[in-house]
Computed example of a mutant assay.
Amino acid sequence: MTVTFVEEGGAERKFEGVEPSQSLMEVGRTHGVSGILADCGGACACATCHVYVDDAWMEKVGGADAIEAEMLDLVSEFQKPNSRLSCQIRLREELDGLRVEVAPNGY
């Protein structure tokens, strides 16, 4: 699989050969994507892996559940309709080519 992160400032980081079943946060953290801090390690207990899903991918990725939405409230000043926590996006084959923008973390 391939996933692309757009870091704050516009730098694109494209990763090929990504294994399905990882979370998007794990890919970002493994590859040192700027802004993917993942302070809680993927437990959906912070918002330090906040991303904006490219509009073309939003339907396939889906929206946040109630718990994730509560965490996104922590960064409400940066929240958009396409906001997600990358720890809650489990990669699967139909997400091959996924593109996200790393949100400002506000921390």
Rank of each mutant, 00 (worst) to 15 (best):
M1R: 09
M1N: 11
T4I: 07
F5S: 03
V6T: 15
E7G: 11
E7N: 11
G9K: 09
G10R: 06
G10M: 09
G10W: 06
A11V: 10
R13T: 06
F15V: 02
V18S: 09
V18A: 02
V18G: 00
E19V: 06
P20H: 00
L24I: 01
L24A: 03
E26P: 00
E26S: 05
E26C: 01
E26I: 00
V27H: 02
G28E: 00
R29K: 13
R29T: 01
T30N: 08
H31Y: 14
G32C: 10
S34G: 00
S34I: 04
S34R: 14
I36R: 01
L37A: 12
A38K: 03
D39C: 11
D39P: 02
C40L: 07
G41A: 10
G42C: 08
A43C: 08
C44Q: 00
C44A: 11
A45H: 01
A45K: 11
C46W: 09
A47P: 05
A47I: 04
A47W: 05
A47H: 06
T48H: 05
C49G: 10
V51T: 10
V51S: 07
D54A: 15
D54Y: 08
D54F: 04
D55A: 08
D55T: 05
A56W: 09
A56M: 05
W57D: 04
W57S: 05
M58Y: 11
M58K: 07
M58I: 07
E59F: 02
E59A: 12
K60F: 01
V61N: 07
V61C: 10
G62V: 10
G63Y: 05
D65F: 13
A66L: 13
A66Q: 13
I67M: 15
E68N: 12
A69L: 12
A69P: 00
E70N: 13
E70G: 08
E70R: 08
M71P: 02
L72F: 13
L72V: 13
L72G: 13
V75W: 11
S76E: 15
S76P: 02
E77D: 15
Q79A: 14
Q79N: 14
K80T: 15
K80G: 06
P81G: 05
L85M: 05
S86Q: 08
S86R: 07
S86Y: 10
S86P: 06
C87H: 01
C87P: 02
Q88M: 15
Q88P: 02
I89V: 15
R90F: 06
R90A: 08
R90N: 07
L91D: 03
R92C: 12
E93A: 15
D96T: 09
D96R: 09
D96L: 04
G97A: 13
L98K: 07
L98M: 12
L98C: 09
R99V: 13
R99L: 08
V100H: 05
E101S: 15
V102T: 11
A103P: 02
P104V: 00
N105G: 00
Y107G: 04
